[in-house]
Nucleic acid binder design. Sequence first.
DNA 1: GTCTATAACTCGATAGAC
DNA 2: GTCTATCGAGTTATAGAC
Lengths: 201, 201
Amino acid sequence: MKKQDTTEEKIIAAAKKVFIAKGMMGARMQDIADEAGINKAMLHYYFRNKEKLFDKIFTEAFLSFWPKINDLLDADINLFQKIESFCHSYIDVLIENPYVPIFVLNELNRQPAVFIQKIFTSGPPKVGKLLRQIEADVKADKIKAISPVQLFINMVSMCVFPFVGKPMLQAAFGMNDLQFRKMVELRKTEIPRFIIDSISK
Amino acid sequence: MKKQDTTEEKIIAAAKKVFIAKGMMGARMQDIADEAGINKAMLHYYFRNKEKLFDKIFTEAFLSFWPKINDLLDADINLFQKIESFCHSYIDVLIENPYVPIFVLNELNRQPAVFIQKIFTSGPPKVGKLLRQIEADVKADKIKAISPVQLFINMVSMCVFPFVGKPMLQAAFGMNDLQFRKMVELRKTEIPRFIIDSISK
DNA sequence: GTCTATAACTCGATAGAC
DNA sequence: GTCTATCGAGTTATAGAC
């Protein structure tokens, strides 16, 4: 929590909470005003309209993890280390922001073009180096033959999916919130191990 | 396409398309009426209100894959065969219904309790046998030690995630629709191979 | 900057003719 | 069963006082 607690900051905090919980279409300006403890008119005074406010929140949510993840992919470390650090850091970020993935994926599917445009202007994916590392290690016979793209998708899938499927997984396996949390924590080391076991010769 | 093309069927087809594309909150009754080429009042004549219409569509979408997947998990085949058949069949279903996962996950996160209730009444997850198979194979030293739950989550994650993250993956790797399709097709065999490589001794 | 009041509009739902 | 017309609730957005 910041010392500075201006109206604008209160609005952003409230809007973040409401938009992430209900999505662009489900959220009501009144909900956000209530959450912020201010008047509805203030929202328009500061952000003009709902669309602009949403855009602000979405961009902020997206930037809360994208640059960090992106830099990890571009780091100068060997493949196994990179897989470990990526999974560890990514899951840490997701634990801190468990509802962001479904929020982002939802918007991604609602307006793919707008979304992609936003990503590429705010720093395009730096996945190239990782793909080349995988390819090089395959050629050097350090790991089994595998498509770099497939491997990358496997890694991201295993990190992200549990967060978007949480209620279903909890129901299927009878996990309460604490147990779910423990299970996800474990994945920080289990996913790298699973991947490395698979590709090691 | 059926020969029988009653108004009710036209409504259901239109509602499915619109709801899956825009979700419960984003969809408009007018959109559905337009898509069906009929009048808005007809929607209420046949389904009373939006909620009931949505429920119909959601249940139908959910049942379009749930029972099939569920039965696969419960089949009497060995572990490796089960992993192969599950990934193959699941991805086949997903290719046929690529927008269903984000639709379902969205609803899942919007109203977890309602959703879970619905699942359990329409046939609870039959994941038990698979988990016991994994456990048994670990004990019998047929595969490496791994948590059955973690392994299951890995498998489902790798199958489903590409479909919810499609636009992002296409952008990141510069894939057009055909290339994406090929990539996903490949995963029907790549995911089982990846998993089996990982857990084999 | 902040509030109250209300305009302007969207959308689900209904009435009633045919 | 199907349509047109319209109501009424709920929401975004604005006007205007303080």
